[in-house]
Amino acid sequence: MLHILAATLGLLAHRASAHGGAGNYTVGDTWYPGYDPYGPADQATAPWTVQRSWISNIPIFESNNISLACNFPGAPAQTSIPITAGENITAVYYSWVHTVGPMIAWMADCGGDCKTFDAAGAEWFKIGEKGLLDGTIEEGMWFQRAFVNWDGGGSLWPETVPSSLRPGKYLIRHEIISLHSANKPQWYPECAHLEVKGNGTGFPGKEYMASIPGVYSMDQPEINIDIYAPGVANQTTYKIPGPPVWKG
């Protein structure tokens, strides 16, 4: 039944993402609908809701904004996406237009039911990150540029839940940081609930963990950046801020 609902209700999220937001998620052949900030008001309490609510596709501009965790208001979802450690989860975006900046996938252990978990107090770890693939910071091929789908179809962002991760209830957070405006970074985060299954016993150590907000600062040159400035525009490397990716 959830599979049928997901395939149908996934259309709701199509128009929600014109400026920035994960519209749907897929695991294998199953689609799960994201929250549509411009859709029906009863989504937040709908039994199929797997994504935490967010009310606007306007970006977040402050590195210390409390909404940086799961966007505003970040109210918990009603259910979780079932996934086995080692499987891919794909976030589907529609009409994404920005092309410069990193994309980072994070997870956090809810320590129980994610419906009662405060994302602002979470300890997050990266499961994947994608940045500058080739060329220069200003004009090169970022994954964010390659990710854009100009024909109106979904832009797909797959990441793998580490195969050794211990089972449990988790948040997954997809974050795009757009750097096209000089010294004015734009954050686009969304969170969904996962129920991870499997036989793993692994979990990242402290060196992989970060607080959100807290991990970013306008003192960081990778965040407070003018990609058009001499000495920056032609650089061919970009260090994605935050801790290293935990691969299990």
Rank of each mutant, 00 (worst) to 15 (best):
V27T: 09
G242R: 09
I137A: 11
K130E: 12
S155R: 00
I60M: 14
G23I: 12
E207Y: 00
G202F: 09
N149T: 15
S80D: 04
P189D: 10
E87G: 02
T49C: 09
L9F: 08
E87M: 09
Y94E: 01
V232G: 01
A122V: 00
H174K: 08
Y94D: 00
N224L: 07
A229L: 14
P37N: 13
L2E: 14
G202K: 03
G153K: 05
S155T: 02
D109S: 05
A146W: 10
G39C: 04
G21N: 13
D113A: 06
K197W: 01
T136L: 08
A69Q: 09
G202R: 04
E129Q: 13
P167L: 11
F147A: 02
W96P: 00
L132S: 05
T236G: 13
G39H: 06
M141G: 01
T26G: 13
C114N: 02
Q144H: 05
K197S: 12
A69W: 07
T90N: 05
C110T: 06
D226R: 07
G131A: 11
G86T: 09
V215I: 12
E87T: 01
D109H: 02
G248R: 06
S211A: 15
C110R: 00
M103V: 12
C70T: 11
W246C: 04
P82E: 14
P47M: 13
P158S: 10
Y188D: 01
W150P: 03
L11M: 11
T26L: 14
R145I: 11
N88F: 14
P73A: 15
A13D: 13
W31F: 09
W124Q: 03
P37W: 14
P40F: 13
G214D: 06
F125H: 01
Q186G: 10
P221G: 12
W150M: 06
M1D: 12
T236K: 13
W150F: 09
M209A: 04
G23V: 14
G153M: 03
L132I: 12
L133A: 08
R15M: 10
Y35N: 12
G121V: 00
G121A: 04
Y38W: 03
D42C: 09
K115T: 10
H19L: 15
P33E: 05
Q186F: 10
T99K: 02
G214A: 08
N183A: 11
P162L: 11
Y170Q: 04
S80K: 02
S178C: 00
D134P: 02
N65Y: 01
V27H: 09
A105H: 05
R52M: 14
Q235K: 08
Y238A: 07
N65E: 07
